[in-house]
């Protein structure tokens, strides 16, 4: 994997290379070079399988970290390509022209994190959250507990707290 990284370094501004194990490594690439790097990996390096696209919300650094995990069938190696994008303007280039299934991940990312992928088919259609009207729910500044309490009603508890109850049962003199 190190040799691969050194070769990639000649063409792309990749950095923050980290090897997790012999067959898994991660590297980071600027937003503008992501699609060309993915094309390079798919067409030349044999990383033909898009395993997943996922996102982590770094609220403190005001950024989303997208991870594109690729798999090489001949060497059985996984390479995670990470790209950091701004939280204020979450727009990313789509990869649905490279992998057809990318559009599903992009729909999901738009729904859950509000990251837009202009040109991706059906990207604004609801996928899991039909009729969702709140902010994208997987963002960390979205308070699910408050939303849940405001929207859905609780079933009130009509029996005792287990801790208190067992104390009374076991040690009634206390």
């Amino acid at each position: 994997m190190e040799t691969l990284y050194k070769e990639l370094k000649q063409y792309f501004d990749v950095d923050e290379f980290s090897v997790q194990k012999a067959s898994l490594a991660f590297l980071r690439v600027p937003k503008s070079q992501l699609v060309s790097l993915l094309t390079h990996m798919k067409d030349i390096r044999g990383y033909t399988h898009l395993v997943m696209v996922t996102c982590v919300d770094y609220l403190e650094q005001d950024s989303f970290l997208l991870t594109y995990l690729l798999h090489n069938y001949s060497t059985h190696c996984d390479l995670g390509i990470q790209v950091s994008i701004s939280r204020q303007n979450p727009v990313m280039d789509g990869i649905h022209h490279l992998w057809e299934q990318g559009r599903v991940y992009q729909r999901e990312l738009f729904e859950m994190f509000g990251i837009d992928f202009p040109g991706s088919p059906d990207v604004h259609e609801p996928m899991i959250l039909e009729g969702w009207q709140g902010p994208p729910p997987m963002r960390r500044d979205f308070d699910t507990k408050a939303y849940s309490e405001a929207t859905y009603s609780h079933r009130p508890r009509d029996h005792k707290e287990p801790e208190e109850y067992m104390k009374q049962q076991l040690y009634p003199e206390d």
Binding site: I128, W132, G134, T144, S148, E149, Y152, S153, H154, R155
Partner: peptide, 19 residues
Amino acid sequence: AINGGMYWDSYNTVKRIDE
């Protein structure tokens, strides 16, 4: 289905089906 269970604070799960 009774009181939300482990999804008691989920944004997309109703907590009591009898409503």
